[in-house]
Amino acid sequence: EAEPVSESFAIPSAPKRVDCPEDDEFLSALDKMVSENIQERMREPVKAGNIDISVPVVLKSNVKKSYEQLQDTEENDNNKIGFVLMVRKGNKQQYKAFEADKDSELAQNLRDQELAQKEE
């Protein structure tokens, strides 16, 4: 069957950023929005909840723990690391599994932590 040799090379690779006043406005509006919102939180006497956010034991044993272990498993995509996001529905905890790229900050962080622990 005929296969395109280099079709994908022939096509431009990604949209490029177009410099314009509207985009610049957006950049400063975003910065402003983040700092204003955080400052607002600091001014307001928001009480931190007294919610227990410890990782339950059940989850601990279920979740593949170490970076190395995670890396070894074959079921995983080679470039992905499994994680669990813990969320709360009312008083109930829920766990949502997701994958992060191995070179993501999240995965890197996990590895650094383990290395640090081993050194201890």
């Binding site: 955080i38 009480k47 909840g49 956010i53 723990k65 995670l70 994680f83 813990m86 996990l110």
Partner: peptide, 27 residues
């Protein structure tokens, strides 16, 4: 996870130490 605020501009996450578990928390 703790206070329930939904403003994404103040939300972030923290990974559990040495666990592959993550929670969302406001700054």
């Amino acid at each position: 996870y703790s206070c329930g605020v939904r403003n994404v501009f103040v939300l972030g996450f923290i990974p559990a130490k040495a666990d592959s578990v993550v929670v969302l928390l406001c700054r």
